[in-house]
Design a protein around this nucleic acid. Sequence first.
DNA 1: GCCGTTTTCGGCCCGACTGTTTTCAGTCG
Length: 568
Amino acid sequence: MRNDEIAGMLETLANLLEFKGENPFKLSAYRRAARVLRDQTEDVATLVRENRLKDLPGIGESIEKKIVQALTTGKIEKLTEVLKAVPPGVLRMMEIPGVGPRTAAQVHEKLGINTLQEFTRAARSGKLAGVPGIGAKKAEGFLGAIKFAKASSRRMLLGEALPLAERIVAQLEERGVRGALAAGSLRRMCETIGDIDILAAGSASGKIIGAFTKLPEVRRVLGAGGTKASVVMESGVQVDLRVVPPESFGAALQYFTGSKAHNIRLRAMARGRGLKLSEYGVFRGNRRVAGRTEEEVYRALKLPLIPPELREDRGEIEAAQKGALPKLVALGDIRGDLHVHTKWSDGRNTIEEMARAARALGRKYIAISDHTRALKIFGGLDVDGLMKEIAAVRAAAKKLRGIALLTGTEMDIRADGTLDLPDAALAKLDFVTASVHSAFRQDKEKMTQRILKAIANPNVDCIGHLTGRLLGRREGYAVDVEAVLKAAARNGTAVELNANPLRLDLTDQACRRAKELGVQVVINTDAHSTEDLQLMRYGVATAQRGWLEKSNVLNARATPPKGKSGGK
DNA sequence: GCCGTTTTCGGCCCGACTGTTTTCAGTCG
């Protein structure tokens, strides 16, 4: 059973117990444990086998027992028990925005409602409005929420959310709102974003809220008070705006950036020091001792400023206390792009066009890396084609100043782990990336062996998009990431962090594991057009979330890499 | 249920908005 499956069971358990009115602190204990499990790159099964499960924060005796149960029997006894006692539809009901455990319990007790369908019917018929705490307005609101949830349950990609937020901030600026910033999971550069949080400083909050709710792309105003407003944009995305006084801006930015887990830790630390931390500042009694900037807030807690990308309660607070925060790689450190497609396979631009566009972005080298023959539908090259492309790359290189062109390929790893072109051809190339593009449904053992075989080949410099996931569309293939990273470390093979916002593969946590194991990460755009070369920012952001420093990133080196086997 | 610079027992983050309840509970972030 996968980590996220067990985490999901613990979360369900928490939700059900919440419905039953169980001690709220017990629930947060389950939820915290679930989050810690999701954060692990190592399989829970491994941790159990090596008796290291209880080393994880938030996992004690009782939860350990439940995890072991899940692994050995596929079930958690307590969950099974509670599932029997709670009507199955209440979890669905609690997913409606505005319906929490208390409301769900009331509706169940007073009206005997057990399913989302019954809930919807009761809301329409007016029955729901008779339940204590629910009036006509709330019932109507629930109906709207149900309809809306059906239309837009999907999370946005970082690559969609960031440009949208930047557009909204620019529009606010045109209307006289200065210094607005996106906070939330977007500022932490999470791979997917639920909704967008924007923060503005100012005293004329009514004016700012008014400007915001009247922006051209706003479809519906969900709510607007004195300091905050929520709207739904034409695209279906929810955007929240908060307006705070300048003396609280840093504290608010800190608070609304999160993560929740990070903030809870900070607030507990503040309490320990006799302080109170809220979105309005750090207070000693009634006196505000910090709040104008984030630096101030962290300093009041005797911490250096922690970069937003690290704020997940994954050890960044402890590192900050020890003065051991990583010096994160930055977009400006990136010198090359080692995975770029052209018209020679399925790219839209020529070698020269890609090179010029990369040079304009400040890249010093790129590796032309087209597909190989197994991907015939994508124009994959055979040996003959590849040799011709090498000649074309060299010819283009002669014409261009200021950027080096490397010969390369995105070599297909076939289902049996053999490579799509012979070693003699690969040996002629400057940089070989090898990727899986077929037989995604192989079991974990087979898939892992397949990739390990490619890693062992001295001509393979890097493994491309390791899990093959497409966010929101396709699960990654089953592969033992830990085993692959360890083999990469042994063989001196690099691993790709594919910067395409649909992939971001390696994940942040896998990047961090690569760093621990001493594996070099290559951040590539996998560009199929000149515009795609700009996707690098998303890859760098994910690398930052993975604690990577410049020295961990192969294409942050000033000179092009010559492959693990040395100059070819 | 977890955990220990406040603790092996007694804590566990804080505030805004909404609707409805005439003084606040529930939900959300």
